[in-house]
């Protein structure tokens, strides 16, 4: 799996300390890292989804994301960071960190909708396996993943190519105006960041 560092968070210094620089996230523990493995040409999405939902022991703990709504890894990094933040503050909406990641990807506040739109679906052909941890997943877990999903493992670079920009526009209600892909990504990111505090 490919390690993607998560952004370290800023811990404000006391107001009376006029520091020019502040080290980020220096609490001694190893930082959380996101591990991601994209698969294309997935043939058994329906089966995997069933096992995942049943909590089958053959399925490692992870989030399986349908690749079509992910324009950029940045979306996943932010969803993970937000999930870890909610875990820290005890403000999680869902019961597990992995469900929280899916929930954070979705612009609406309905958990079931988040699962339906961003989680693996019966018809998914491109899927991203996402894990978060302070240690990389063991070889055993990686083997479990490889035997579970019948598809082609590909590099992280291919993630943008698996996205369906039209579907993203629809889910995030961005209208159909002409804009660059980066601009669309910015609007998606902003909407994710403002989720829960917008209204």
């Amino acid at each position: 799996m490919h390690p993607i560092p998560l952004p370290p968070l800023f811990a404000p210094p006391p107001a009376d300390v006029p520091l020019a620089t502040v080290p980020l996230a220096g609490d001694g523990s190893p930082p959380y890292v996101m591990y991601i493995q994209p698969f294309t040409d997935v043939q058994n999405a329906a089966e995997v989804k069933k096992l995942l939902m049943a909590g089958d022991p053959r399925v490692p703990e992870m989030t399986l994301v349908d690749a079509s709504n992910i324009l950029d890894i940045f979306q996943l990094q932010l969803a993970c960071t937000k999930a870890l933040l909610s875990q820290r503050d005890n403000t999680m909406t869902t019961r597990t960190l992995y469900a929280e990641i899916l929930f954070n990807l979705c612009p609406t506040n309905k958990i079931s909708e988040a699962f339906r739109k961003f989680g693996i679906a019966d018809t998914s052909t491109a899927v991203l396996a996402v894990m978060v941890g302070q240690q990389p997943p063991s070889a055993e877990i990686q083997n479990m993943l490889a035997t579970l999903i019948k598809g082609t493992p590909v590099g992280v670079d291919s993630v943008p190519g698996l996205a369906d920009v039209k579907a993203v526009n629809k889910i995030f209600k961005l209208g159909s105006g002409q804009r660059t892909r980066n601009e669309t990504l910015s609007l998606v990111i902003g909407t994710m960041a403002l989720k829960g505090i917008m209204s």
Partner: peptide, 27 residues
């Protein structure tokens, strides 16, 4: 502040994209 930034960004005015709001740290 975060809301205003995002609302007018969506309306097509260029503003910095909000990445993350950490209410506990007021950042």
């Amino acid at each position: 502040e975060a809301r205003c930034l995002h609302r007018i960004r969506r309306a097509g005015v260029d503003t910095p994209t909000v990445y993350l709001v950490d209410l506990k740290a007021s950042t």
